[in-house]
Design a protein around this nucleic acid. Structure first.
Lengths: 233, 233
DNA sequence: AATAATTTGTATCATATGTTACAATAATGA
DNA sequence: TCATTATTGTAACATATGATACAAATTATT
């Protein structure tokens, strides 16, 4: 027996169902929305430029296939990769509707890639016509703002011990007074924006001061009060 | 002759016309929008709590009259003021629609104040029905994200000289190679998150190294290349 | 012009962190 | 099990910055 009878017309870009912006929209509805939104598909060969830093942001662009990267170029021409963006994520989603919004970095295709492109105006109309998309997009932008705000507060701790205390206190408790670091010291140091030996020193210092017991990545919290105090410097 | 003939029904809250969220909406339209949005007015006496840190954000709140402040309370009970919020600004506007969004700080009335309150759901419907409000709000949130992102990048400069170089290079040119600092060293140091003497030292150091000539707040840029190089550390 | 209040320039000292290097330990794979 | 690699613990030193203090210079006010 052929399955054809049970098949419905498949989505053009099924990956969009999982995108932060379109998730929760019914398939047929999504097809319809897109169709009315004047979307375009643009293809980029490996290594070609998708957008240049300081280019004005004219559209919402979502990676459909392949992979692109954001990168900065310093004076000497050296490239610094910022992040990879894979399907079904969008470029600079939280910046699109800012006044005079421009791409903060260069965007280059890591491999042959396709982007779904919807102009700002069309996308705004799309949000007006579909509450789910509006809600999704607001969630994306607000999340980004919250993330950035949190990161900013985190970096505003002066000392490494302060950052470390904050980090430890926000780790999930394994058991009574025990947490486990989820990154290597190397990764943690990078996350903190400090060097690895300095981080190790801070850990040792917390232990020497009797605030914690650190055995490999397992940490037993001894003095909660003092740890909390460190996050208030 | 009486003026009454020429008077039209005045707006209930004219201050809203200048709010980032409602600006550009015609008066009668705004009245109508508000009326359909189930808005409420809440009054707060001086010193009373408008919202507590970690309270869930249930509504958009706009200061109509008076003044409120965001403040953190540290362990010892000491209060640290974050910012004052005056009419017609909103509370935590960029956080409202984040998943599980909560107030990041306590909000307290500085003086007797009134707040316009619209529930998240009602405000979202309002945005769907009015393109100007939608556009305004998106602009507010995206601007915030851009601001935070820029601030983050700024703070990621390790050295004070790096921050200073970046700051100087982004100042508007008065004339050929000349810029003017728009803040006192005190304010600048605060903005950089460093101490005032350290900032002065950094300035002196740049001058001694021959990158700039600093006379009071007037700065003459001598070595553009070297300044730019400092922003790439 | 005289005086007061801010703002700026410096100095000294303590400390946190970066830098580099190497050994010790743990994790991984043959 | 052994060997290899990755991770962690420390050390020594240089440097940037914080903290504090005070004098000089500038700006505001009378």
């Amino acid at each position: 027996m052929k399955k054809a009878n049970f098949e419905r017309k498949s989505m053009k870009y099924p990956v969009l169902k999982n995108s932060p912006i379109f998730k929760g929209v019914r398939e047929d509805e999504l097809d319809d929305l897109l169709h009315r939104s004047n979307y375009k598909i643009r293809s980029y060969h490996e290594g070609t430029v998708v957008a240049l830093a300081d280019d004005e942001i004219a559209s919402l662009m979502i990676v459909i296939s392949g992979e692109v990267r954001g990168e900065m170029v310093d004076m000497t021409g050296k490239r610094i990769k910022i992040e990879d963006i894979r399907p079904p994520m969008a470029l600079a989603a939280a910046f699109i509707f800012g006044p005079g919004s421009r791409y903060p970095v260069n965007v280059v295709a890591n491999v042959d890639s396709e982007m779904l492109v919807i102009s700002k105006g069309d996308f705004m109309r799309l949000m007006q016509s579909n509450a789910t998309v509006l809600s999704n997009y607001l969630s994306v932008v607000c999340s980004k703002a919250m993330f950035l705000s949190g990161r900013l507060r985190f970096l505003s701790f002066r000392t490494i011990k302060g950052k470390l205390a904050h980090y430890i206190l926000n780790l999930p408790l394994k058991e009574e007074n025990r947490v486990t670091l989820d990154k290597t010291q190397e990764q943690l140091a990078d996350y903190f924006g400090v060097t690895r030996p300095s981080l190790a020193r801070a850990l040792a210092s917390l232990e020497e001061a009797g605030l914690i017991n650190a055995k490999n990545r397992n940490i037993k919290i001894i003095d909660w009060e003092a740890l909390i105090r460190l996050t208030h410097d």
